[in-house]
């Protein structure tokens, strides 16, 4: 596989995951349990959308077909999206928002830490920046997991439910596609499977503090490689892409 093409695919995966999570978090604006949390979640939304912008812009350059980050965000159908299925899951309740965030934050801290060593200078620079943001996200989401886990019977019940429900999306974080394999061989990206042991240790540590039983990980789901998604992505894109679809090229 051509390196530029592989890197395009890889940046698309990372960019899409950030974009979709950013949009999900933006939906929480004015819906968080209290004001500071509203500010926190919308800050997260900005960070993820900002990361997506940088990654998709770079993806567009690598592809070399003149597509901008906006073209990639607003003019691709569902099956061309390469985000993790985890992040397109709806904001069922606050526990789901937190668990989804915590699973991804732990992952991104580890991934970006490795990507800082990338032989691709642009990717390494972006990862250095993104890691700092991911650390703040992680501190916030993991402390919420502890609070909800140690809270009332109701908060415990809800966070257990969210954890059990979202756990099935774990395997796709650590599965490689052909672009990752090609890039890992060149020292441009880490093999995501190598992140699993540390991810598990960190998840277990927080679960332990929160008094939560970590689910066993023998589920399988992978949409990131195939473009197959859960039903939720289509609804999200319908809203996110509406304006550019209805008024192509609209600017303000």
């Amino acid at each position: 596989m051509d390196t530029n093409q592989a890197l395009f695919q890889y940046c698309l995966r990372l960019g899409d995951t950030n974009l979709i999570l950013g949009h999900r978090l933006a939906e929480m604006c004015s819906r968080a349990p209290f004001l500071e949390e509203d500010v926190a979640l919308t800050n997260f939304a900005l960070d993820h959308t900002g990361q997506a912008e940088a990654l998709l812009q770079y993806a567009g350059q690598l592809e070399g077909k003149g597509r901008t980050e906006d073209d990639l965000a607003y003019l691709r159908p569902e099956w061309e999206y390469r985000n993790m299925l985890l992040v397109e899951q709806p904001n069922t309740d606050f526990a789901y928002v937190i668990v989804r965030q915590w699973m991804l934050d732990t992952y991104q801290c580890l991934l970006y830490d490795q990507l800082r060593q990338s032989k691709d200078a642009v990717l390494a620079g972006m990862a250095t920046r993104f890691l700092k943001e991911a650390i703040y996200h992680y501190r916030h989401s993991s402390s919420w997991v502890e609070r909800l886990g140690q809270g009332t019977d109701e908060s415990q019940r809800r966070i257990r439910q969210a954890l059990d429900d979202l756990w099935k999306f774990t395997p796709e974080m650590f599965a490689a596609d052909t672009s990752e394999i090609a890039l890992a061989a060149l020292g441009i990206v880490p093999e995501s499977a190598d992140l699993l042991p540390q991810w598990t240790v960190n998840m277990a540590r927080v679960c332990d503090k929160a008094g939560l039983q970590m689910p066993s990980g023998d589920h399988a789901s992978a949409g990131i490689k195939s473009g197959r998604h859960t039903e939720h992505l289509g609804h999200l894109l319908a809203e996110m892409q509406y304006l550019q679809r209805a008024y192509p090229g609209a600017k303000w």
């Binding site: 939304a45 900005l46 960070d47 993820h48 959308t49 912008e53 972006m126 920046r129 943001e133």
Partner: peptide, 8 residues
């Protein structure tokens, strides 16, 4: 260079 990637 941007401070935060999503800094408005």
């Amino acid at each position: 260079t941007p401070t935060y990637t999503g800094c408005p």
